[in-house]
Design a protein around this nucleic acid. Structure first.
Lengths: 210, 210
DNA sequence: ATTCGAACAGGACAATCATCCTGTTTGGAG
DNA sequence: CTCCAAACAGGATGATTGTCCTGTTCGAAT
């Protein structure tokens, strides 16, 4: 059915798969899962329908691949690693916010947190995607809590439950990202960073610092 | 083209319009704007295509009506009024979280914050919807900040910028709702409430309580 | 009683969606 | 070389999508 050999073809399954997944991650993150059609992805990635459905029979499988791959990697790169390498959790949080704010300001627009976006769009729509998302989320929280506990053992005055605090940090980050996305301005992130540091740094527990 | 008068019809433009808008608010909040088709809404609201397109020529106009109406009202009812009527901002926040957690637990599932959901789905997709959303958001923040300032004037020890703190509260609430939606569990909201109160109540400013 | 615009009925419409299908090409195993 | 499964090409398909259109009915004003 294909014409002649007008163009050379080279079988590169991993390369094409990566092109599709990367294109999808970008589109899902900036525009959303639902509004991105597989046609859009085919043309954007430069792959034919045959190649596409060979690697990803359904759109959902592509979504799961993006979650398990690019989204998990993004969380790892922008949060987990910087926190682990920072001196303290609060120093890590401060650096992470500063970097994201800087990137957003020079990018000119705010797309939001990739994981947060996919969660709020798909969590009540597809249970497999929801579970894939919470797996990433739980690792994120676990690593953050671990760092907080390490800080506490190192003598930092922060008598709060590490898991609870990690949840709170991620929540305020997600929400600040959503506000920034709505207002298309990074100032919500600046506010969040400032107040989060205030929350983390001076913490005499329940009684006001004896 | 219509058959005979098999069923009586009563012209009730406001009633039908309200049925459509309320159905749409429920569907947009629990499932999402994109995945909800106008066919779904027609059957769910029990209106014909003619009636629907008479009141809302496009889906977008319906979305804007839902935002300006039901979503704004929901924010008013669940946040602005309770905060205004509470003794202090932190007491109001505590009561609001407690009520939402109670409702979610007995409802059995978490759909997320209606405004937060629509923002993260539509903010980068349609500028009119985005602007409608930030109008609600800004009023929300303004009222919250006003309450915080009133608390400060009343002698409460909270030397923080009211607008910034309001942003932070809304952000952490949105994010906690998103986490709760992902995990289908209200514990993220409990964590957020607890830490938010800690943040609000004991606040000796920059220097650790002289 | 007549009239006229608003309110509504009930489909028709093209466009787009995700998926599937048949056929061709590639590249390694034997 | 031969052979064959995986990798890809290039549409076709049926179901949905949002919107539109023609015709009918209501209700208030005259």
């Amino acid at each position: 059915m294909a014409k002649r050999l007008n163009k050379r073809r080279s079988n590169d399954p991993e390369g094409i798969r990566k092109r599709i997944v990367d294109t999808a991650f970008s589109a899902f993150s900036t525009r959303g899962y639902g509004v991105t059609s597989v046609q859009d992805l085919k043309t954007a990635a430069g792959v034919t329908g045959g190649a596409f459905s060979h690697h990803f029979p359904t759109k959902k499988e592509l979504g799961l691949a993006v979650l398990h791959g690019n989204v998990a990697d993004a969380v790892e790169e922008t949060w987990i690693k910087p926190v682990a390498e920072a001196k303290t959790a609060s120093a890590g949080v401060e650096a992470i916010f500063a970097r994201i704010i800087r990137e957003l300001d020079q990018q000119g627009f705010v797309s939001g947190c990739p994981l947060g976006n996919m969660v709020s769009e798909l969590a009540r729509q597809d249970d497999d995607m929801r579970k894939a998302a919470i797996a990433i989320l739980e690792k994120w929280r676990k690593e953050l809590a671990q760092k907080i506990r390490a800080d506490q053992r190192a003598g930092h005055c922060a008598p709060l439950d590490a898991e609870t605090a990690a949840n709170f940090i991620i929540a305020s980050y997600w929400g600040a990202m959503a506000i920034a996305k709505a207002s298309q301005d990074s100032s919500a992130l600046k506010d969040c960073s400032q107040e989060l540091l205030r929350y983390l740094e001076l913490h005499p527990g329940q009684r006001p610092c004896l």
